[in-house]
Each structure stands twice: as C-alpha cells, then as structure tokens.
Nucleic acid binder design. Structure first.
Lengths: 192, 192
DNA sequence: ACCACTCCATACTCACGCGTATGGAATCGA
DNA sequence: TCGATTCCATACGCGTGAGTATGGAGTGGT
C-alpha cells in the first residue's frame, strides 16, 4: 500500500537498498526484484544502485542474509524466557499465529525456491527453527526421536499452511476458523 | 536423467509438447520452461512450437490442465476401494509416501507459485485433496469441524514436507528415518 | 576556498527469449 | 498422382532488463 513511506532522504546507503528489496520481495515476490523498479521506488536511478552493489544478485544475497540475521531472535528469546517448558510450545504457536509481517517474507521466499540463492538461506533458517522445535518438544517431556519427528511434522505443517492459505488464498479462513485451526493444531501436535 | 526417451518420432502433436513441458517442469521448474529449450529437447525448432500453440503461456496452461486431469485418479479410487474406512487413511499415507514421480511436478509447481497461471490450478487441486481428506476423516469417525481442521493440518504437513525435504534437500532423510517419520505422522494425525 | 570522496544521472551496449513471416518438406485424401 | 493440409526450418523483429561508461552534483575535511 505505502510505496513511499520514506520521506525521500537525499542520499541512500546499501542498507536502504536491502530493506527496500526485502519489502518489495514481501509484496511482489523475488521475481519482481528488478533494479530499475527498485530505483524508481526509491526515487533514484540505476546509477545509484550500481555504486552500492556490483550486481543484482549481490543485492538479493545481501538482502537475504540481512533477513536471516534479524529474523526470529525476539520470538525465540521470548519463548525461552517462559519458565515452564510445557507452556512454551502452545504459547509459541499462538504468538506465531498472530504475527503477520514476518510471514510475508518467508512465504515469498517459499514460492521463490526456484532461485539458487534463496535455497541455502531457507535451508539454514528452516533447519534452525526445526531444531528449536525439537528441543522444545524434548524439554516438554518427549523422547529424542519422537521429538525430532514431531518437530519436523510441526514445521512442515507451518510451511504448508503458509503455502496453502497465504500464497494460494485457498479458503481465506475467517478469524474464528483460523483460531479454531490453531487450537486444533495445539491439541493434536502438543502432548498433553 | 532420460532426456531422450522418445525415439525421435518425426512428427509431433500438441500432447507431445505438453508432456515434454511437464517433465521439464518436474526436473527444472516452471522458470526453465522456454520454447527454444523445449524445441531443442524434442529435436525440432520454434517453428514447430508456434504451429501447435499460440504462445508460451498457452503451452503452460495446457500442460497444467493436463496434469490436473490425470493427476490423482488412481490413488483416490484405490483408497476408496478399501472397505473399512478406518484403514483408508493409514493406507493412503503409506502409499503416497512411497510414490515419487507424482510429487516431482507438485513440488515444482509449489515453488513456482509466483506465476499467475499455476496459482488457480494448485488452488483447485489442493482444495479437492483437502476435501478428500476431510471426508476420509469423517468416515473414520471424526466429527465435522475436527475432520476439517485435521484435513487441513494433514495436507499442510504434506505440502510442507515436500518443500522442506524435496525442494530444499534439507536433511535428506535416510530410508529408515523417512519410514519412522511416516509412522509418526500416522500415529499423531490419525485417530486410533 | 579547495580538494577528495561519496553518491547519483544520463546515455548507452548487449544478451536473451518471445513472437512473426515465409517458404519448404512430409503426409493424406481423392 | 496431385492438390490440400499438416508440420517444421530459417531468418528475422523487438521489448525488456542487466550491466557499463562517464560526467556531474553534493558533502566533508583542512
């Protein structure tokens, strides 16, 4: 909606380009990441871009690594702060479910898995998150192998949900249906 | 692997192009679907292509609809043939798990959800399959709303698994780990 | 005030892939 | 056998977007 949130600061930095790239990816996908389009959106021309970055892929890589960096730190630390391990997973589910913006980028990257540059990033991120889930399940009292399988299943359900209800706007769940679904997830995936 | 399974029949039909397009999509993704590349692979030139199809997108659309047509008929009919409703779901899980080729196209389409043409096709297919799961859960003795939620959860887990372990070759599960995961899925997602 | 350095504009080149135009070869029906 | 139709090759046009060359404006240090 707001293509012009920045009040046109006269000079730009590489970080400005990376942020703009990420928000463009979130809104229109990786395929829409073109340097002239980005330049227009920032109120400059290509000349600026090629001073900050050697190539288009360099920008994409930098943006992806930036996203990987400042990705999920807060939520993870918030969850780890919960004393009772058995309360962590349901709380994680509910908090993640009520987020929105962080999922946009992830969903956009999910449907851009064609591109060679996003694959390793997504692989790393997904691996870390799955491992986080695994330890959470373990600390909730689940034995090792089952915790691993359950973590994989949980994260797969998350990824698949994004694809089905975010990218494909499949049934476009109502608010109540969505909450019902989340509670159903908690009931079936988290041990009592 | 086998780029040349056809022994070079001299004349081609539109269906030949659609099949070739699908196998190319399965191997290299939708983005790699270029008419000159396909023509080379078929041993002809563009001149042939533009006789059969008006445009590149026309081929993509035709190929997608062809795939949607002959997609899952067999498995569904096989599963519906099982007399005891409570045996259908675990059997479905195990059979689907031991397939390979059908998942290739689906996974390729999953990571090409950028493209406007694949979205409606995937939406229809995913909707039908989810509904199939829903009735299967219902017939296994689950009440309506829970069956719907469980069906969504199950299909989301399937989609997510494809993305994580197929597209991203994340941990590249060993055969035993994979079977273990499938049995874990059956145990947690299917009511006893 | 002046220089050096940073950031950006303008104006190109160039590769790539879609689509078109047109003529020729293969095949089929009569 | 001989048109008519189907299928394909060759040779183009053409838009798009990445990358380059080069000069100029803005900014900070001395």
């Amino acid at each position: 909606m707001n293509v012009r949130q920045k009040p046109e600061r006269t000079r730009l930095s590489a970080e400005d380009w990376e942020d703009a790239a990420l928000s463009l990816i979130a809104e229109q996908g990786v395929g829409a990441l073109a340097v002239e389009a980005l330049a227009r959106q920032l109120g400059v021309t290509k000349g600026s871009f090629y001073w900050h970055f050697r190539t288009r892929e360099a920008l994409l890589l930098a943006a992806l690594e930036r996203w990987e960096q400042y990705g999920e730190k807060e939520i993870i630390s918030q969850i780890e702060a919960i004393p009772d391990p058995r309360e962590r997973l349901p709380e994680l589910f509910r908090r993640v479910a009520h987020e929105l913006q962080p999922h946009r980028v992830y969903a956009a990257l999910l449907k851009a898995l064609d591109h060679p540059l996003v694959v390793p990033v997504m692989a790393r991120v997904s691996k870390r998150r799955t491992e986080f889930l695994q330890t959470a399940y373990s600390e909730a009292g689940m034995e090792a192998e089952e915790a691993l399988n359950r973590a994989r299943l949980t994260y797969a359900a998350y990824v698949g949900f994004l694809q089905l209800n975010f990218t494909l706007g499949l049934p476009r769940l109502s608010h109540e249906d969505f909450d019902s679904y989340i509670e159903h997830m908690i009931a079936t995936l988290i041990p009592a």
